[in-house]
């Protein structure tokens, strides 16, 4: 026969084929970045990279919940804008206001997610349309709230999370606060997705909603929870972005598609049933690394969009190909 080979090498091959390709991609991209900029290996290099990737990575970790449950959440980009604009309006340069504005913004994120979920579950609007409508609505709200000209300041207490560093850390010298937030959020999201009943049910309703319902899974409750987690991730990402990007009415624009791209790069199955929070995190890092490389090459912004679009298509095509190979 033609396809011989010792059983050990085929077992090894199988083990290798189970490694999520996003990690291979990420290693290659990081190697390319180091090649072009050797200083990347110093803490200032990679910590700044992680800091820049943090909002997208958190957003992607939340987006995975909705994708695995069988939907999309396009509203998170506008939600970021609304959080940033709303925070600047509410804090009104008062440093003490941060302590109630941040919890309020997190609650708003959960609330927007809950509304998305309710619309999808009870009005039977497909999630793509429901969250597209929410995206436009939230954008409009942000404009209305700020009168089109947002006040350009957020107090330093608010910007602490996006901008500050914790210094004198052994080994790495410093850690940005946003990277700590990133680690905690991705850790908790990964635990909830892969180690709890909630995560199992999100997988089940995305895989086969009819079977899940007939098995007694509270499908609506689980779906709404998935949207709420995505909304929460949008609010957290907004708080970080407000910290280092400042206030504008397009601060969140495009983030929703980047988050979906990152999740799919990490192997999340569009239409639901399969996906991983750590791999979406890897996808977000890979996407940020690609943008970094394009920056080094001096390519203009529109090229980023072209590349991002092609990556999304390529990632889905690759996922379909692997599914055909492993599935029946």
């Amino acid at each position: 026969m033609t396809d011989t080979g010792s059983p050990r090498s085929s077992a090894l091959r199988r083990r290798l084929s189970q490694i999520n390709p996003v990690w291979v991609l990420l290693v290659l991209l990081i190697a390319a970045i180091i090649f072009m900029n050797p200083r990347f290996v110093e803490p200032t290099g990679y910590m700044n990279f992680l800091k820049r990737a943090a909002p997208l990575a958190i957003l992607a970790a939340g987006q995975v919940y909705v994708i695995v449950s069988g939907g999309f959440d396009l509203s998170v980009g506008s939600l970021i804008t609304l959080v940033v604009v709303g925070s600047s309006m509410l804090t009104n340069n008062d440093p003490a206001a941060t302590y109630w504005v941040i919890p309020l913004m997190l609650t708003m994120g959960l609330g927007v997610g809950a509304i998305n979920g309710l619309i999808v579950c009870f009005l039977r609007v497909p999630s793509l349309i429901a969250t597209l409508g929410m995206m436009i609505t939230l954008n409009g709200l942000a404009f209305l709230w700020s009168g089109g000209a947002p006040r350009g300041y957020l107090p330093d207490t608010f910007r602490f999370f996006g901008r500050e560093l914790i210094r004198d850390v052994p080994l790495v010298r410093f850690i940005p606060v946003s990277v700590l937030v990133l680690i905690v959020v991705v850790g908790v999201f990964a635990w909830a997705m892969h180690r709890t009943n909630l995560g199992r049910h999100i997988h089940a309703i995305g895989d086969n909603p009819v079977a899940a319902r007939l098995a007694g899974v509270p499908v609506n409750r689980v779906r709404i929870t998935a949207f709420m987690i995505s909304g929460l991730s949008g609010a957290i990402a907004g708080i970080l972005l407000g910290g280092f990007a400042g206030v504008s009415t397009d601060v969140g624009a495009g983030y929703e598609l980047q988050a979906i791209t990152a999740a799919v790069l990490g192997g999340a199955q569009l239409l639901g049933g399969k996906g991983s929070v750590p791999a979406a995190f890897g996808g977000a890092l890979a996407l940020t690394a690609i943008f970094t490389l394009l920056n080094f090459l001096g390519l203009p912004q529109p090229v980023r969009q072209v590349v991002q679009g092609l990556i999304l298509i390529a990632a889905v095509a690759l996922a379909m190909h692997r599914r055909k190979q492993t599935g029946t």
Binding site: D207, L214, Q269
Partner: peptide, 9 residues
């Protein structure tokens, strides 16, 4: 397949 199983799990 369509009512019983969650096939990818």
């Amino acid at each position: 397949k369509s009512e019983g199983l969650v096939l990818m799990q």
